[in-house]
Write a protein that binds this DNA or RNA. Structure first.
Length: 484
RNA sequence: GGCCCGUUGGUCUAGCGGCUUAGGACGCCGCCCUCUCACGGCGGAAACCAGGGGUUCGAAUCCCCUACGGGCUACCA
């Protein structure tokens, strides 16, 4: 039995989404845990698409899910395998079960079943298949066939208790009557979910079935199928769900839940992965900031919580900002460029020609970025030469010391080709001496004069990144404001 | 209705019978750093461990009941 703590090359896990839309953070977490487990134990990570319900659209959805997984950095070793490409396999196994008497054909129509189900509900009975076709005579079968009815194939569910041993939840026992004979092959020849998973997980050699809690109750049915067919039963690990802040099942109504939308909003994949891991798994030590590789190292199934987690965007934001701060400037700038471009601050040419300046801006702004997209707002003072005054900036225009500071600043600026980390303090001192202002009375007018704002990043950054020419122009228009 | 799973500050969680006056993180508040904002550092408020019964010398931790939340009960996955 593979357990946490030693390397097992036989470990094989899988992520098996159904292509019903996009990858949301719950699915992403299931994928992540599988990925972490596979990597931790040198195992294999299989990706399988459960697309047997042909009524739903899926092509677009599959593409999106694969892209999201790649973006998160969750690489898989096998697949994607599509269940729709394996339909004859399921059919073959279903027929085999028929031959062995483990299953039977059921000619009941969906309408008939629905009527019966409703009736049972009304009589406060458990709505389940009543066994109508369990013991059909050859004559009855012939009769139905003659009517042109297409049969579904149902599993003859054995009448006994089933124990599921779950790596997260422990032993869960189900009574003998927990389920009626359920369909394994629909009348259109496609397999039902419970049947297809069992065949697939068995044939693909999956050793641990790690999935969402919504599948826990399906598990005894699957265990029965494994045993009926003589397959070795894998281990199971059911991960609790992720709930919205209103404690409901997550859906688009609760803000951003789709992975690709987080990407658009300016979250880092490593931050997403870090945050998602913390929902339902707790690190062995106090540490909470992890890279993917560190997660692989630290992950273990026995620290996965049983209770559902409510997702909280505030903590995600914090984690995102932390990952941004850790990133080196070169890499961060690359990620920022798309946002700078769409804000109209840079283009293909200036990205190259002004690279040094852009790197300085990146470094200056780094501590203030929560989302990558914040750069559009934060970097505006460097690219937009028109002053947009905020309340404090405007107020500073009226200060007594302001005109003198502006004039001193203009004069001093004439003395420099450019301001740098080395001569910046010297320039400030000169302005101070000429204007007679110091401290707040010096800095706030300086800041307001070239950015229009009363607060913001360190003046040393602003004055060394902007050119003297830019600053002079801005100061002049600020002077106009004072006079007006 | 039945069957399962869950319930520690607003949120994520630690805790797996005594180490607990219940620890950490986000958020919130205050102080420090500082021209300001952000970062960072320090400190604080915030949980009668869902409620009630047991078991035990001793329970957030074990058992039972109740409440609440969720899942499943399909020819959805």
């Amino acid at each position: 039995m593979p357990t946490d703590g030693f390397i097992n090359a036989e470990v094989k896990v899988r992520f098996a989404p159904s292509p019903t839309g996009y990858l949301h953070i719950g699915g992403a977490r299931t994928a992540l845990f599988n990925y972490l487990y596979a990597r931790k134990f040198n195992g294999t990570f299989l990706l399988r698409i459960e697309d047997t319900d042909i009524k739903r659209e899926k092509e677009d959805s599959i593409v999106r899910i694969l892209e999201d997984m790649k973006w998160l950095g969750l690489s898989w070793d096998e697949g994607p395998v599509r269940q729709t490409q394996r339909l004859d396999i399921y059919k073959k196994f279903a027929e085999e079960m028929l031959e062995k008497g483990l299953a039977f054909k059921c000619y009941c129509t969906p309408e008939e079943l629905e009527t019966k189900r409703q009736k049972m509900k009304d009589e406060k009975l458990n709505p389940r298949y009543d066994g109508t076709c369990r013991h059909l005579t050859p004559e009855q079968t012939a009769q139905f066939e003659a009517e042109g009815r297409k049969p579904a194939i149902r599993f003859r569910v054995p009448d006994r208790k089933v124990t599921v041993n779950d790596l997260v939840r422990g032993e869960v026992i189900y009574d003998e009557d927990f389920a009626g004979d359920f369909v394994i092959l629909k009348s259109d020849g496609t397999p039902s979910y419970n049947f297809a998973v069992v065949i697939d997980d068995y044939q693909m050699g999956v050793t641990i079935v790690m999935r969402g809690e919504e599948h826990l109750v399906n598990t005894p049915r699957q265990v029965l199928l494994y045993e009926a067919m003589g397959f070795q039963v894998p281990q199971f690990a059911h991960i609790s769900m992720i709930l919205s802040p209103s404690r409901e099942k997550l859906s688009k109504r609760h803000g951003t839940v789709a992975v690709d939308l987080f990407k658009q909003e300016g979250y880092l994949p490593e931050a997403m992965v870090n945050y998602i891991a913390l929902l339902g798994w707790s690190p062995p030590e106090g540490k909470e900031l992890f890279s993917l590789d560190e997660l692989i190292e630290a992950f273990s199934l026995d620290r996965v919580a049983k209770n559902p987690a409510v997702y909280d965007v505030e903590k995600l934001k914090w984690i995102n900002s932390q990952h941004i701060q850790k990133m080196d400037n070169e890499k961060l700038l690359e990620l920022l460029i798309p946002y700078l471009k769409s804000a109209g601050f840079v283009n293909d040419e200036t990205v190259v020609s002004k690279r040094e300046t852009l790197l300085k801006i990146t470094e200056a702004l780094k501590p203030r970025l929560v989302l990558l997209s914040d750069v559009a707002r934060e970097a505006a003072i460097f690219f937009d030469d028109e002053l947009h005054f905020d309340e404090q900036g405007k107020e500073a225009l009226g200060w007594e010391a302001t005109p003198a500071v502006f004039d001193a600043f203009l004069e001093v600026l004439d003395e420099y080709e450019s301001l740098t980390a080395d001569n910046f303090m010297e320039a400030i001192k000169k302005i101070q001496k000429k204007s007679g202002a110091k401290g707040k009375n010096l800095y706030v007018p300086l800041r307001a004069g070239i950015t229009g704002q009363g607060h913001g990043i360190d003046m040393s950054w602003i004055m060394t990144i902007l050119t003297p020419e830019q600053m002079k122009n801005r100061l002049k228009s600020a002077k106009q404001m004072v006079l007006a």
